[in-house]
């Protein structure tokens, strides 16, 4: 299961947005990957997410696999949108 987002946070996915995204995914059991520029990292790893250096305007894909994958993706989407980090596309 996957969803794509366009990043709208003015500084891209820096420390604060990365913290929010990783915190939103961590409580779930499902494995979750964030793909940007053909490179995938574990969305539960803040170092991995920050190391991607995702700028504003980037398109990222988040794919989850596991028993609670739908809940996880819903939560990630909620955080993306309500915190002004990105919009669904």
């Amino acid at each position: 299961m996957e969803r794509s987002f366009k990043i709208t946070a003015s500084e891209g996915i820096h420390a604060r947005p990365a913290t929010l995204l990783v915190s939103s995914a961590t409580p779930y059991k499902a494995d979750v990957q964030l793909t940007y520029n053909n490179k995938s990292v574990n969305l539960k790893s803040i170092m991995g997410v920050m190391a991607q250096g995702i700028p504003a305007g980037a398109i990222v894909t988040i794919s989850a696999e596991g028993p609670d994958e739908a809940e996880l993706l819903n939560k990630v989407e909620e955080v993306m949108v309500t915190q002004g980090l990105g919009e669904k596309c």
Binding site: V22, T26, K44, S45, I46, M47
Partner: peptide, 16 residues
């Protein structure tokens, strides 16, 4: 304080 929330995630980073 947000910087320490980030530090906590670094500490518990599954990849690390």
């Amino acid at each position: 304080a947000a910087i320490f929330s980030a530090h906590l995630l670094i500490l518990e980073d599954p990849e690390i």
